[in-house]
Amino acid sequence: MIVFTVLILCVIPATRYYQIDQPLMRWLRGPNRVDPAELHLSGEFVENNLGTEIDPDGSVTVRMIAQQYLFVPHCVLVPAGVPVHLRITSADAAHTFALIGTHYAVKALPGTITEAQLQFANPGEYTAACAEFCGAGHFEMRSELKVVPREQFQALDSVKRGGCVAR
């Protein structure tokens, strides 16, 4: 009976292991592993964690999801002259986040977080297009990346920094 109780107590956490944000579980999953079907439930790619975030050292981190046939957020805002850590994953097929006019092209794969370091010297607007055939809507899979002056970016509140999608 005690053995049975202990067994049940062990089985419950084991079936929900992916929801537990504990060091052991993180280690078991590996550093850059995510479940593409469950990005919206927990972890760093949940809805209000997407977009740009200021790091303690003054650089910024951008989290994005590539999916058929959109990049989310659809418009990303980053400051000029600051290292940009891009963390991107895919919810379905393989995509490539390519900034037209630059040499940046980052592959987004389901199940894996791709990390890339970008930096933009001057303010400007870029078109980000999917550079890997991903299905029927691939050729329309485009989004925007806006580089704004650093002071202007820091003056924005945390919601506005997140993205520049008109809503």
Partner: peptide
């Protein structure tokens, strides 16, 4: 504008 075709999904 980055709008995918409706019929793709």
């Amino acid at each position: 504008r980055g709008i995918p075709p409706c019929q793709a999904c």
